[in-house]
Design a protein around this nucleic acid. Structure first.
Length: 179
DNA sequence: ACGATGATGAAC
DNA sequence: TTCATCATCGTA
């Protein structure tokens, strides 16, 4: 057998995303967001995420039902859900769970880039990726690169900026990597 | 603490 | 058609 690389590197498969949202959110820490343009390729380790889980979660856009905006969340796992907020920032989410069940994970931060609006600006991510697959090497995808984050380095907190969601705002569905 | 800035969903 | 709201961030 020929060893071609000592670095495990693979695009995350749909099966990774087709699991409970909280599990996917947790497991996304340490994975790499990869952005490829004509200028080149950029990789950054995911360090902060939030889970948005189902129609009952008042913080989840899908609690409003199936609309033009929320449609991607009702679609198959492993696809992007990108929307604009406050007129100037784009939020990058990846759809999780089985088709028909609306859920997604918001990617809030990568190494060296803290903040969901800042990371989409830095990587030039906008609505053209909305509803496109995150599981193929087509511009924007997520890779496993052999990084294992110890549980001790993972912190859980309530989600940011969803005070309007009442009891749902108290759930500790934000996961972050503490270096 | 506050304003920028525009898409969205719900009310009318 | 109008209106309040918003998974944010930089400046003060």
């Amino acid at each position: 057998m020929i060893v071609t690389s000592i670095l495990m590197q693979s695009v995350l498969h749909q099966n990774f995303f087709n699991r409970p949202t909280l599990v996917v959110a947790h497991d996304l820490l340490g994975k790499f967001l990869v952005c490829q343009t004509e200028k080149g390729i950029a990789r950054a380790m995911i360090t902060e995420v939030e889970a948005y889980d189902g129609p009952r979660d008042k913080a989840c856009h899908a609690s409003k039902g199936l609309t033009e905006r929320t449609a991607p969340m009702f679609g198959p796992a492993g696809h992007w859900y990108v929307y604009m907020i406050y007129g100037m920032y784009r939020m990058l989410n990846v759809v999780t769970g089985k088709e028909g069940y609306p859920a997604a994970v918001l990617i809030r931060g990568v190494l060296e880039v803290e903040g969901p609006g800042k990371l989409t600006k830095k990587f030039g991510i906008d609505k053209r990726f909305n509803a496109l697959p995150a599981i193929q090497k087509t511009g924007l995808w997520i890779e496993e690169r052999g990084v294992v984050i110890p549980e001790k380095r993972i912190k859980r907190t309530p989600r940011i900026g969803v005070e309007y969601a009442g009891e749902w705002a108290k759930k500790e569905w934000r996961f972050l990597y503490i270096p």
